[in-house]
Amino acid sequence: MTNEALQNLISTWISDPETNGLEFTEEKSQFLNITVQPEHLHQLMTQLKNNSETSFDYLFCLSGVDWGKELGVVYHLESTVHRHIIVVKVKTEDRENPTFDSVYDIWATAEFHEREVFDFFGIKFKNHPNLKRLFLTEDWDGFPLRKDYVDEINMVIK
């Protein structure tokens, strides 16, 4: 399915996409990008996976991003049936306690990806079965991939 067809299809799923915070872009990207509000994330993801026309059954990348102001997660989805790819982004401005729904129940691979994002960005995932540090030590203080992370001992800033 082409990006345009994907966009048209997905817009029909949600009534009034603009007020519900659904944004589509293709700028500087070969894939269709969707930005979605955190409260609609899980529903949209379930639909992307289960709808037979989209059938995104493969989450091939899940990354945390710190845009400076907002924290967010970027999901790259592919369909092994239709061979199309889509990018879903979700953001929040809450840096104290950023929380999104876990997509672990949709794609099991997200379990470790979300642990990694939690480890480096401190983003929490609701309903995650085992949310704890993955790479860093248990007693690590702070989240090192955030832009405002400070470590005066180990880091040489340039």
Binding site: P144, D151, M155, I157, K158
Partner: peptide, 10 residues
């Protein structure tokens, strides 16, 4: 990895 890294031994 000399600059701006929290994890690498210099």
């Amino acid at each position: 990895f000399y600059y701006n890294t929290y994890s690498v031994v210099k």
